[in-house]
């Protein structure tokens, strides 16, 4: 038995992303590692969208205000 943050099996986003991931990579599924890796990029994209800039200070300021709603993984990002 193990204790780590995990995917949200009831999440719509999880079902959708995992279906494509498993199709791309047969025998694999979104687990805690690939799942949070997916989320990491989503956090950056969301920050870029709000920062409207790739400037470091703007991006850091946007990242600090991150509040990403998602149901891929458990927990807020």
């Amino acid at each position: 038995m193990d204790n780590v943050p995990w995917v949200n099996p009831k999440g719509k986003m999880y079902a959708e992303v995992n279906a494509r991931f498993s199709k791309l990579y047969p025998g694999k599924y979104i687990d805690t590692n690939s799942g949070y890796a997916y989320l990491g990029v989503m956090v950056i994209a969301d920050a870029l969208e709000r920062a409207k800039s790739t400037n470091s200070a703007d991006l850091v300021a946007a990242l600090r205000k991150t509040y990403l709603r998602q149901d891929l993984m458990v927990g807020g990002a």
């Binding site: 991931f21 590692n33 690939s34 890796a37 989320l39 990029v41």
Partner: peptide, 16 residues
């Protein structure tokens, strides 16, 4: 684990 995480990053980029 590294491969699985790179794939997670890449899929998110492709989706965006």
């Amino acid at each position: 684990i590294g491969i699985s995480m790179r794939r997670g990053n890449q899929l998110a980029v492709d989706d965006i």
